[in-house]
Design a protein around this nucleic acid. Structure first.
Lengths: 344, 344
DNA sequence: CCATGAATTGTTAGCGCTCACAATGACCTC
DNA sequence: GAGGTCATTGTGAGCGCTAACAATTCATGG
């Protein structure tokens, strides 16, 4: 690990290593590329020179010659929330397993402008493809109208968009939650939904409504929150007012809002689950320790990551996507103390 | 935005654009680089050709010629936790403001091997520098012994490491929390600490202990958790056993564990804050809605991001770091309902 | 009307790597 | 021992861009 004798200003090049080892630069390249036809002693000489000089292949030159950067891009927003953060992690993990590096652009808000700028930046960064976490309707629209020189896979766009996408089946999740409450003996299920322009929120509303209708129940008007505990708290205060007038069960579109709802109910003297049962969505690590522990729907973010990367790589390689280019992943219901057999 | 007439196999090059616009490739380069001495009509011609052909500069070639990739790397772990996720976001945001793209490697666990591999990958990716979120002692050791061809700034290493680093002043945070409880009238303060090999956990223990000792109080033996709500729950069960035997206040090393503690106390019939006051650390978005809302210490992750990137860029540019290369950032106490004036 | 210098544009070399192909030599086969 | 094969290594030509310098154009003043 000694320092080499080249100018300290410039890191050593492959040619420097070759000279040192007494071979051609191409042989060095072969050693680095694990090419089979290199004599064992030659390889050793080269490796020794590499080690001695602390040589590292220049990635830009390599990328220029091979036309591959082995880098993917991700555009995301709200990355401190559990869902996006988990997806991000899963994506990076899956990409790494495939030999790719991931460059991330985290936006405060997803608009045509910010998305466009993000794609430009990633393009300047030489990514071979991009995963867009585009949970809002506006983002998906932006995505379809924007021109980009690489394939893009959307995640969290809900069902029914034209671009290749990977999604957790939100309607199914809502159905699981709603059916669970009905099975517990509740006559109807109220719903605190997410923001109107979020695909996932819309799909959860759809799944909830469809399930109630299938059970022959007229769905009450859903409330709206913005995913935050505070908005859940406010909605919870409103919901508390309906207790005793037909409200016995609430399906909340995410765990954070459910936390707010629980607090509001508690403050209003409404007991969970005895008076009102509550179901959340996401299974954040905290929900198991809420008061009471929250029944919720878990999404398999790891699967989302794997499938998204697989789909994107198919697109990059020009392969026909293995399977379809609209992937749906099944969520799973977790029953905890916030729901309880209800006996009217 | 029409399609160009070049081979669909190869994206257009600068030379293609030059030909189309009737200028030399260098003029195209000048236009793209906003070089001043280009006639206005020439610029227009070039821009038109670029638009028409959908030309995009090849980042690899550019990087090769300029020796700049304008990419930074980040190594992190536990990225779905609020703290790391927030730091990650802040880092990316700050880097973007400086014109850099960020490549992230998220590790499941931080060991010499995984860290070394991560740095290698980032090196292969051509990053100009790396921010390492290295909250564990082992990671810092790995960092100091690992050789890398670019500057590295460590974040969350606590005080007193040899490498350039940026940190929230954890001892101060612990001091704020502990003093707050003492000021509320508590005779002593118990502590549920984080994992032993985490710098931040150690610093919080130190700050807590020092504050108690400064107040002339013998600190009780701290409990240990692993940051998870579950570990907090278990510790909380143990703590509940000490109620009535001198335990009236607990400083918990993070909000998630505090959540577990709250649940355990509640289940044991111990009221918060009337019987036991609880303070957390981090101010995760949920803590305001815990039962009861949690007094906690907020860390300014945004400042961490900005300062880290500034420091790293100084190192990359070979500038003397503006100020020191050990940056400490002040945390802030948020008082909520989980602490309460205590009247013995 | 030409020298003068500034503004504008073009030309030539790389940046450090991989790819395609050529060259070398060792080893067989008949 | 000629011809062929295979393993191993070297050579040359880019990849698409920027930097440095050369060349050209243009306006201006004496």
């Amino acid at each position: 690990m000694t320092e080499s004798n080249h100018s300290p200003l410039r890191p050593p090049t492959m040619a420097d290593v070759a000279r040192q080892a007494g071979v051609s630069h191409q042989t060095v390249s072969r050693v680095l590329g694990d090419h089979p036809n290199v004599r064992i002693e030659t390889r050793a000489k080269v490796l020794h020179a590499i080690e001695e000089m602390g040589y590292r292949r220049n990635s830009s030159a390599r990328a220029l010659a091979t036309r591959r950067t082995l880098t993917l891009g991700v555009v995301a927003s709200n990355t401190t929330l559990y869902g996006p953060a988990s997806t991000l992690f899963a994506l990076e993990d899956a990409a790494r397993a495939e030999g790719y590096l991931v460059s991330t652009v985290s936006l405060r808000e997803l608009t045509v402008e910010t998305l466009s700028e993000a794609l430009d930046r990633l393009s300047e960064g030489g990514v071979e493809g991009v995963i867009a976490l585009a949970p809002q309707r506006s983002a998906v629209e932006a995505l379809t109208e924007l021109r980009h020189p690489f394939p893009v896979v959307a995640v969290g766009t809900g069902s029914g968009v034209e671009i290749p996408s990977v999604n957790v089946d939100q309607r199914l999740g809502a159905e699981l939650a709603t059916n669970h409450l009905l099975a517990m003996g509740h006559r109807t299920v109220w719903h605190l939904a997410g923001p109107e322009d979020w695909h996932e929120a819309a799909d959860r509303v759809d799944g909830w409504r469809a399930t109630l209708e299938a059970a022959g129940v007229e769905p009450p008007a859903p409330l709206r929150g913005d995913w935050s505990p505070l908005s859940g708290y406010r909605a919870g205060q409103e919901l508390a007012g309906w207790v005793g007038r037909g409200l016995t069960a609430v399906f909340v579109a995410n765990d954070q809002m459910a936390l707010g709802v629980l607090r509001a109910l508690r403050e209003a003297g409404v007991r969970t689950p005895q008076d009102v049962a509550v179901v959340g969505f996401d299974d954040i690590p905290e929900s198991e320790f809420f008061a009471p522990p929250l029944t919720t729907v878990r999404q398999d973010f790891s699967a989302v990551g794997t499938r998204s990367i697989a789909l994107l790589l198919d697109l990059i390689e020009g392969r026909t996507p293995s399977g379809t280019s609209r992937v749906a992943i099944e969520p799973q219901l977790l029953v905890r103390a916030s729901t309880f057999p209800y006996h009217p």
